[in-house]
Each structure stands twice: as C-alpha cells, then as structure tokens.
Amino acid sequence: MNRDCPLIRIRDLANRFGDHVVHEHLDLDLYSGEILGVVGGSGSGKSVLLRSIVGLRRPDEGSIEVFGEDLQSLSERRRSKLERRFGVLFQRGALFSSLNLQENVAFPMIEHIGLARSEAEFLARVKLALVGLPVNAALQTPAELSGGMIKRAALARALALDPEVLFLDEPTAGLDPIGAADFDQLLLTLRNALGLSVFLVTHDLDTLYRTCDRVAVLAKRRVLVAGRLEAVENVDDPWVRDYFHGPRARAARQSPPSSEKS
C-alpha cells in the first residue's frame, strides 16, 4: 500500500443543500490498493460524498484531487477520461432495464473503447463469470433477477473498463446474510486479483469487519476519524462508541476475520 501519494485526496470539502449543510471542512484520502469503509449515521452525507467524488454533484467548496489532478478544474474531456478509471456500483444496481446483462456490461466497452459488439460481449461474459454469475444469466434482463444477482451484475458493469477505483454504495444492503457474505468474499478476491482500490459506503458491520483495511467515520459534517479499525473503535466519541461497541458490532467483531484480508 502506498501511503505517500493518495489516489483520491479530498480537502476542505463543503456540500450544502440550501440552508442544510451536509459537509464542511471535510478531508479524506483514499490510498492505492486499500478498501476504505465509509460509515456514518443516516443523513450524514455518505452518498453525497460518493456522488461528489465521482462527479455527479459539484461540491460547493473545496478540492477533490483524483490521480493527482483537481477534478473541478479539468476540462469536460479530461474529466470524462479520468472518470473512466472509476467504477461505480449504485445502491440498487442501476442496471439498464432495457438491456440484458451481457449488453449491460458490454455497453461501456462499446461506447468508450469502441470494441466490436461480439468482442465486447465475450469480455462481458468473462466479467459476469468473474463475479460468479451463471452462464445463462447473460441473456436475462435485470427484471428477471434476484437482488443478489443484480448486485453482482452491477459489479460486473462497474468492472467493465477495468477501473482502478471502485465506488460501492451500500453493496450488501437488501441482501440476505449468505448473499452478503458471498459479496464480501467476492470483493476481497477481486481486490486481491485486480489490485483495486475500493471506496465502500456501508451500514453493514459484518462487511466492515470482514473487508475494510481502513474506516472513515462521517459525523458532525466532516470525517471524524479515519484509520485502521482497531484505532477507530477506540476513539472517544459517543457516536463512534455506540456504533462500534453496540451489540451488533460486538457480534460482528467476534466472527473470525477473513484470511484473505491483506
């Protein structure tokens, strides 16, 4: 892990919706090859932060440097090129409902790289197999799939352009415990194999304990603390204490940590 030069460097970020201030003086770094878990209460602006980084929302103040370049000051074209190095998994999958799965995954490859349809669909099937979907799922439409399969397919689409940074917005929300555990395992496998950096917004304590290298706690409009789990757990703050020392957190901590975690 390269500690000196973060892939994403957020400084002094502010986001406001009218009078409602979501972020103020928010600093956060994402380093290469790590899985960063972002936690916080409902309405603490986790998703807003994610949307600011991937360029879906223009922050009111502050700078977001990505791969050493300031996102706000880039031209539209440079930005689009940079954003191709991101993969985003939205909370409910956001698969295109008019396309089947292999078309969904092939779509960014056809649009951005200009691959022929047959080549793109071959690669799409590889990606679908990579996220553990059965072969015949490739021809199904999102409406025919279960929640877990949609999450997997959305992950395959997020991986379509071999991104360096993966943004996941509550990937295990709405999955049953088995599906969620499978997803955690998949995330670790892919991170280790593809060398991804992952920005993981989650409420799921099991995912947090199982996969994350570092955790950032969003509270009081900024990043209260960011660091390794053991360090974050012991921060003296009522919210952090309630979060990491509540009955659910205790249960999640006691489960054996994954051997694949680096």
């Binding site: 099937r125 590889v126 197999a129 990579l130 072969v135 490739a138 280790n192 194999a193």
Partner: peptide, 22 residues
C-alpha cells in the same frame, strides 16, 4: 503474485463454457 492471482481468477471464471444456450 498479484498478476498470478489475476490470471488464476480469470482462468477460474473461464473454466466453464461462457456461451449461453440460445
């Protein structure tokens, strides 16, 4: 090791036939 992991993961994914039955 990272590259080996990548090749193995992809190989594992492609071990089964990839063409769905039309």
């Amino acid at each position: 090791p990272a590259r080996r992991a990548l090749l193995h993961t992809v190989a594992q994914a492609m071990a089964k036939p990839l063409t769905p039955q039309y």
